[in-house]
């Protein structure tokens, strides 16, 4: 599993859960909040992505994530490489 693939999964779940966004619009250096995501959107994106990647990360570890890239790094710690 590459980080690029993890980012792709996250991006796909973002466009699935947010309106009027295309994959190419999403900059991993930005936070989902920058694209108008609310709490529920973020829960959905994170839990859908984790299910897809077959990982489970405690919520407390996700509290300080600053942007999409950072979230992908966190996911990378858990995926089978």
């Amino acid at each position: 599993m590459t980080k690029e693939r993890v980012i792709e999964v996250i991006k796909n779940n973002i466009i699935e859960n947010l309106d009027d966004l295309e994959v190419d619009d999403i900059d991993p250096q930005k936070s989902m909040k920058d694209y108008g995501a609310n709490s529920l959107d973020m829960i959905e994106v994170v839990s859908c992505s984790m299910r897809e990647l077959k990982i489970k990360i405690p919520r407390s570890e996700l509290a300080d994530i600053a942007n999409i890239d950072h979230l992908a790094d966190k996911f990378m710690d858990y995926v089978d490489k």
């Binding site: 709490s39 973020m42 829960i43 919520r59 509290a63």
Partner: peptide
Amino acid sequence: KTINELYV
């Protein structure tokens, strides 16, 4: 705890 963690 969940509510506090999840709500932005």
